[in-house]
């Protein structure tokens, strides 16, 4: 038994080492830095003044709320959309499935910078997509650029392939015999889904939710280009602190807050979905 334990730690060692060296140490340095005075706030460090400052300004509270809201909405929209797609795709043969997934991933590979250019054109009131609709009077100017909705649309588009890939991989690993068994026992396709497929796919739904939430909350390019300085999220705010006023200390505090919130969100999502996963 001790042998097995030793082996277990040995297998965990590479990941823990990598994590400690490239995340733990920089993170510790960052958190230590977040307790220090800076160009904006003078106090005797180490102290929590930077955190107090951020949490006492309604503008920054709004930024925090916006970050969480956008990530949550993105997750709630993406997971059902991706689940249905994965259900439909899983019946494809290996080669066709490969091509189908490739079709979903190439927009990501081309890079978010290019895709965001496309969104800037497609979401504009007078752009080639919405412009004719607005001009014909079919819709009022939707003002999507610079709005939260615009950012969420592009976030859903960015994370959807990751959700489909995760769910598709999970669904394909459920043994087809189980469906057959359910059917031969007289279960209809809906009850077969509810009692066999859905419970067995919950672990991948949980993974997909956490992946999607994390990607959305930490994304930079969509909020930067489509939301801009008027719709800051914690990532774009942190970038502003670092790039515009070289305030690494306040940036570190904002990043520390994001870390805490994300941790809480991940634990929350795990608890919410995990309750339904049979051990």
């Amino acid at each position: 038994m001790t042998g097995a334990r030793g082996v277990q730690w040995l297998l965990l060692l590479p990941s823990l080492l990598l994590l400690a060296l490239l995340l733990g140490l920089p993170l510790a340095a960052m958190l230590a830095n977040s307790l220090q005075p800076n160009v904006l706030l003078s106090f005797t460090g180490p102290a929590l003044d930077n955190y107090g400052y951020l949490l006492s300004r309604s503008y920054y509270l709004q930024v925090i709320l916006r970050t969480l809201r956008m990530a949550a909405v993105t997750t709630l929209v993406t997971i059902p959309l991706g689940y249905i797609a994965a259900m439909l795709l899983r019946r494809l043969s290996g080669r066709a499935g490969n091509l189908a997934i490739m079709g979903l991933t190439f927009p990501i590979l081309a890079g978010p910078l290019t895709v965001v250019l496309g969104w800037m054109a497609l979401l504009a009131n007078g752009g080639p997509f919405l412009g004719p609709l607005v001009a014909a009077g079919l819709i009022g100017p939707p003002n999507l650029l610079g709005s939260e909705t615009g950012v969420v649309i592009s976030l859903v588009q960015f994370v959807l392939p990751f959700a489909v890939l995760t769910l598709y991989t999970g669904l394909r690993q459920i043994q087809p015999q189980l469906h057959e068994a359910a059917r031969s026992l007289g279960a209809g396709s809906l009850s077969g889904f509810l009692h066999v497929t859905l419970p067995l796919s919950l672990p991948s739904a949980l993974s997909a939710s956490i992946i999607v939430f994390s990607l959305a909350a930490s994304s930079f390019i969509s909020p930067h280009y489509l939301g801009g300085a008027g719709q800051l999220t914690l990532t774009t705010l942190v970038t502003q602190f670092i790039m515009a006023t070289f305030n690494a200390e306040l940036a570190a505090a904002a990043a520390g807050l994001l870390l805490l919130l994300m941790l809480a969100a991940v634990i929350g999502i795990t608890a919410a979905i995990g309750r339904f996963i049979r051990p």
């Binding site: 250019l117 800037m120 054109a121 009131n125 007078g126 801009g228």
Partner: peptide, 20 residues
């Protein structure tokens, strides 16, 4: 009431083209 806050001209050039 700005509709776009810009750092580079490329941030807003597509919007000039679309009339936004």
């Amino acid at each position: 009431k700005p509709s776009k806050l810009t750092v580079f001209w490329t941030d807003w050039a597509p919007l000039a083209k679309s009339g936004d």
